[in-house]
Write a protein that binds this DNA or RNA. Structure first.
Length: 466
DNA sequence: GCATGATCATGC
DNA sequence: GCATGATCATGC
């Protein structure tokens, strides 16, 4: 046993030693002489950090890395937005969930809590053109969960455990929970594990902190907090009810009232033409100032969607998602795909309905996509990928009466799948992105921007009606 | 009346 | 200039 440059029995000495890494790189601060420094694997940074800076062998123990002081070391990548403004590049992945044993745990003696109640976080700036040894280390600090966050995290942990207890480990989704998620872990998400109350094997998953929550940690540690407004302001409230219950209770008094009436009751006037009108209306109802972000929504990566229903309850429009890059789409695996990631978020739907000329608030509902439906979207994603790879986007071109051209495509339509479809989402037909394979019909190397859409019938039957 | 392709508008 | 929410147009 060689002498360590820090005292394993003294947490402060470990943190101080860690903080010497600030504004340095692994190449400068340690002398790795290992063949795995050549590979730029996801885990490489953490392994070299442990082995050549903290001088212990990387392990997968269920105990925290610095067991004497119960401190767990985690390193994680940042990306830079504007000057000096860092956000997390991804979720922070913690320990793997053992489906067989978690069902016998309580939160306080859970593997999650034992390992992660006190974190030593090392954030480095990820730059794709660099070797990981040359990443700049930007933030080194201890993180202990604030009590008010911890109530939500406990709640999340209980939800994850409950789903496993119900024999639904294979149906877990990050969208099930708010701050603490169950994210897939393992090569291509393909690793399978046994679960206690069902014979079907489940994908291996780990506890993880949502990207939005990690952004909150980063902002806290760097004192660069955006202006936040809280929905849950005291620990008492956090203990007695969930965020979802509180939000719904705040909206309920306005059900079946039209927008003018709601604004009247709130005693505010906001520009109804503004693009952020619905976001502002929601903030006003939740009691948050317009210039503030909703803290809990940001931390939980909640996606808010406003839907206007026609009088027959069918949403007037389908729901769009971000445009995809054709080249990225064909290169990605389903498990790491952009659309799966988006659909594993938690959503807040705000439903209005047209009555005469007025829009009436009908209801709000938190929702995340059930596992079976995510598998349906996988079919749509697969088909889309195949069409692009085959260079068979355009099926035929029609000439309209006015001489304009309409291109019929092979992309999966509403008829192809009951959950989602693929449609243009562009300024016009000449607003395009490069194709990985030239389209056989048009001979073009680009095509109009497209994205995935949720079918309005799906929204009506599975989100509004449900 | 709806599905599909196409386009508009606004805020950052 | 782009991302995103919103809307239009046409033909079946």
């Amino acid at each position: 046993m060689h002498l360590l440059p820090y005292d394993v029995n003294n947490k402060l000495s470990i943190i101080r030693y860690a903080q010497e890494l600030k504004n340095q790189t692994l190449r400068i601060k340690c002398q790795p002489s290992d063949q795995n420094t050549k590979t730029n694997n996801k885990g490489s940074f953490g392994q070299i950090l442990e082995k050549y800076y903290f001088l212990y062998e990387p392990n997968s123990n269920s105990e925290p890395d610095f067991i004497e002081v119960e401190l767990e070391l985690k390193s994680s990548p940042l990306k830079q937005l504007k000057k000096l403004n860092y956000v997390s590049k991804e979720r922070l992945v913690l320990n793997i969930i053992n489906y067989l044993t978690v069902v016998d745990e309580d939160f306080v003696n859970s593997s999650f809590w034992k390992k992660n109640k006190d974190l030593l976080l090392i954030f480095y700036l990820h730059e794709s053109n660099k070797n990981f040894l040359d990443y700049q280390i930007k933030i080194v600090d201890e993180w202990i969960f604030p009590d008010i966050d911890l109530e939500i995290i406990k709640n999340d942990w209980v939800r994850i455990k409950q789903k496993i207890q119900d024999g639904k480990a294979h149906e877990l989704s990050e969208g099930d929970t708010l701050y603490l998620g169950a994210c897939t872990k393992g090569s291509k998400g393909g690793n399978l594990r046994a679960q206690p109350n069902a014979s079907i094997q489940a994908k291996q998953r780990a506890y993880s902190l949502k990207q939005g929550y990690v952004n909150h940690i980063i902002a806290s540690l760097t004192h660069k907090h955006p202006s936040y407004g809280k929905i849950i302001s005291t620990l008492d409230v956090a203990k007695s009810s969930s965020i979802e219950e509180i939000v719904i209770a705040k909206f309920q008094p306005y059900y079946n009232k039209n927008i003018t009436e709601i604004l009247g009751i709130l005693g505010i006037s906001i520009n109804q033409k503004a693009k952020n009108f619905y976001a502002n209306l929601s903030k006003a109802i939740l009691g948050i100032s317009l210039n503030q972000e909703i803290e809990e929504f940001k931390k939980a990566d909640i996606v808010v969607k406003t839907v206007r229903l026609k009088e027959n309850f069918l949403p007037k429009e389908d729901i769009s998602f971000p445009v995809f890059q054709y080249k990225d789409l064909v290169a990605e695996k389903w498990e790491e795909s952009q659309i799966k990631d988006t659909l594993e978020h938690k959503f807040l739907f705000i439903f209005f309905q047209y009555e005469e000329q007025n829009l009436i608030l009908k209801k709000v509902t938190f929702w995340n996509m059930p596992y079976q439906d995510i598998l349906e979207v996988k079919k749509v994603w697969n088909k889309t990928k195949q069409v692009v790879l085959d260079g068979k986007i355009v099926k035929k071109i029609k000439i309209n009466k006015d001489g304009k051209l309409t291109r019929l495509t092979n992309f999966p339509s509403k008829k192809y799948n009951a959950v989602a479809h693929v449609r243009p989402h562009a300024i016009n037909a000449s607003d395009t992105l490069p194709l990985p394979v030239k389209d056989k019909f048009t001979k073009s190397e680009t095509y109009t921007k497209h994205c995935f859409w949720l079918n309005n019938t799906y929204v009506r039957d599975n989100i509004y009606k449900a």
